[in-house]
Design a binder for these strands. Structure first.
Lengths: 339, 339
DNA sequence: CTGTTAGCGCATTCAC
DNA sequence: GTGAATGCGCTAACAG
């Protein structure tokens, strides 16, 4: 039917008015009569007009788009977070540009530049496991593009951040195992440049300390916390001289990898080894209730982070404030007692 | 350090040359001396120049961005497909704008318009379960924006499509159950406006026919194939007069829901009821090998669909060809025999 | 090889 | 309340 590209000029010509009026009408400016507005909007619909956001953004230097960089969209936590982000962003009139770093620093760096080149109004990041410095975020700061970290944040102060209390999560997870009777508790930890893993580890140590259980270096297995890392760590755990009877994993995926390995070896969960990991709904749901998990409120974090970002974007005139929102983790016990 | 917005004019001024030359140099045009190129690139880096893609795209009417609409990014099949799409797109010099319809027609319609307004160079869609007509894709055609359907396609000819042979998948799944000794095989089916579900259903019927097993309407449970739908169907299956001993589910999620329900009720899989579903790696991996699955080559489909789309985009001068690529499904048996 | 000019589509001054 | 003119930053056409 309608051909290719209809511009405000085309509809102005047809109505024998000026394109500025059309522009104003379509932006619902109060400086246009309702009558002419109606006429213009009717004509626009009829002609199949569609605003060219590129031109509009070029002119206003606002894209109403926010960029988000996560390690991997298929991870349950991140897809929940994205759901929260999209919902909130949509309500505030923003679109979301979703990007995956795939845990690679180089990709993360490129993505920041891509987002910058696309002139997004703000950026939300959960850093990759390889990210140890933050130079690549400097460009955002130079351009005055608001940035919010969520979940996997950095330890440099002065950034806006939404996170959960990971120290507390680690502490409670470990305490839970201790209270249930575990004596030798191993820990699967992640790269220490990522604050969440560092803090979960600290929580683990603190819980041991509280219950006067000696901390042993060899009980901590550091890896990138993929499924196979969990399995490998499980193998190492079985090879230890000490008989391990509890395990706290710093993420969901590694916990699952470890659990699988243990099961293959005929080890009973939680009877022989009790595990506390993090929630991963699609998987948690189909497992027998052998895993106690810590819930990560991804959706909620997404919402909060987006609100924070949007308020930064829209108050850019004022000095950008630095804010940190801390959420409480919650332990989900799938059974009344472990041992 | 560097301030806000540096344009090609700024760097032209600094070097006492014309901005067109700068533009040409930055686009690596052969019509600029290597010397001046080097000089310009050096200056650009030094000044922290970053191309404004909005302006560039406005001028060239090419964004080098492709939009993709899937029902839900967290679904294993789609996240694999997205991985394939991103990889291929990146190689071809395109960015990917990922959107989720969340199985809602209205969202799908809005997303098409959003992509259009953002002037993406092409679009890839796997339709929602609610999508029964295709008017909302008309705008793409009018604008000459190439469109490729993958996996969940439509039955209207004249569109580019990448799909797997779903009839064959349904047939082989059902045949597998029959050969393993199942006599009463139920089927979990999805909305029949979605071709893949229709064809899987047809394959199921054809297999029954081949083995002279009477088809019974009450053995088919139609739903939106969510996890809870699978569970509900499982409940209905147990309430039947006929004792069902085999189940073919038209997707992975419903199969998992059904399996959980059966297990809760103490029914042994596959001894009491054998199930064939579709692969869902993160979940398949942690289950005991009780589920035979059909592999959906998401990554491969993503690659193929992207290649198809890119070739359409880049040959837009010629008439747009219509092509359908059909992939073979492959049955993955996790154990040698079921019964 | 490089400079000049014009315009992509829109929003925003400034007039009236 | 509406029209005319200008420019966002870039690239393409045409000169030279």
């Amino acid at each position: 039917m309608e051909n290719n590209k209809i511009t405000i000029h085309d509809i102005a010509k047809k109505l024998n008015i000026n394109s500025s009026t059309v522009s104003r009408a379509l932006n619902n400016s109060p400086r246009v009569t309702q009558k002419t507005k109606d006429k213009i909007i009717a004509a626009a619909n009829e002609m199949g007009y569609q605003r060219n956001l590129l031109a509009s953004s070029l002119r206003t230097s606002r894209t109403h788009t926010i960029g988000i960089i996560v390690p991997r969209i298929s991870r349950h936590f991140f897809s929940s977070a994205i759901a929260g982000i999209e919902e909130t962003a949509y309500e505030a009139g923003y679109h979301v540009f979703i990007c995956q770093s795939l845990e690679q620093l180089e990709r993360e760096q490129n993505l920041v530049n891509t987002l910058l080149a696309n002139r997004v109004d703000g950026v939300m990041v959960s850093i990759s496991m390889e990210t140890e410095n933050y130079d690549h975020f400097q460009g955002l700061k130079n351009r005055g593009v608001p940035l919010v970290f969520f979940d996997r944040h950095c330890d440099i102060p002065g950034y806006n951040t939404v996170l959960i209390d990971d120290f507390r999560a680690g502490f409670e997870a470990t305490e839970h195992l201790i209270v249930q009777g575990c004596k030798n508790i191993a820990h699967l930890s992640g790269p220490q440049n990522v604050e969440i893993y560092k803090n979960r580890f600290k929580g683990y140590q603190k819980a041991l300390e509280k219950y006067h259980i000696p901390f042993k270096e060899e009980m901590v297995f550091s890896s990138r916390l993929m499924e196979k890392d969990g399995a490998e760590s499980a193998k190492s755990i079985l090879a230890l001289n000490t008989k391990v009877d509890g395990l706290f994993s710093a993420n969901d995926v590694a916990a699952i990898g470890a659990m699988q390995y243990f099961k293959e070896k005929g080890i009973k969960i939680p009877h022989d080894i009790a595990i506390v990991g993090f929630s991963n709904e699609p998987i948690s749901g189909i497992m027998e209730p052998s895993l106690t998990t810590i819930d990560q409120p991804g959706f909620e974090m997404g919402r909060l982070a987006t609100n924070l970002l949007v308020s930064q974007i829209e108050n850019k005139a004022k000095e950008i404030m630095k804010e940190t929102i801390v959420l409480k983790p919650s332990l989900i016990e799938r059974r009344s007692s472990i041992k």
